[in-house]
């Protein structure tokens, strides 16, 4: 799943380790989520959204829904 966590993190000047500390996860977890290798659970997605003051939909892009929308158009 695509997301804008890397950009949001860069805006705030946080390292992956700093973000990981705030979320209570490992740095490799943040890296896996940023690169799209791992989709976080709903509770972790909510924690990420809360930390950046945004909604889940603003941070994560539902590629399946986007593809379906494009196909419908």
């Amino acid at each position: 799943m695509k997301n804008i966590i890397k950009a949001l993190r860069a805006d705030r000047g946080w390292s992956q380790a700093a973000l990981a500390d705030q979320l209570g996860v490992s740095r490799q977890s943040v890296n896996a989520i940023e690169t799209g290798k791992y989709d976080p659970s709903l509770p972790l997605a909510f924690s990420i959204a809360r930390l950046f003051g945004k909604s889940i939909e603003e941070i994560f892009e539902d590629e399946t829904a986007t593809d379906a929308k494009l196909a419908a158009e």
Binding site: G24, V25, S26, Q28, S29, A32, I33, Y38, P40, S41, L44
Partner: peptide, 8 residues
């Protein structure tokens, strides 16, 4: 006890 990515 570890985080969800590591657990996986």
């Amino acid at each position: 006890e570890t985080d969800e990515y590591n657990r996986m």
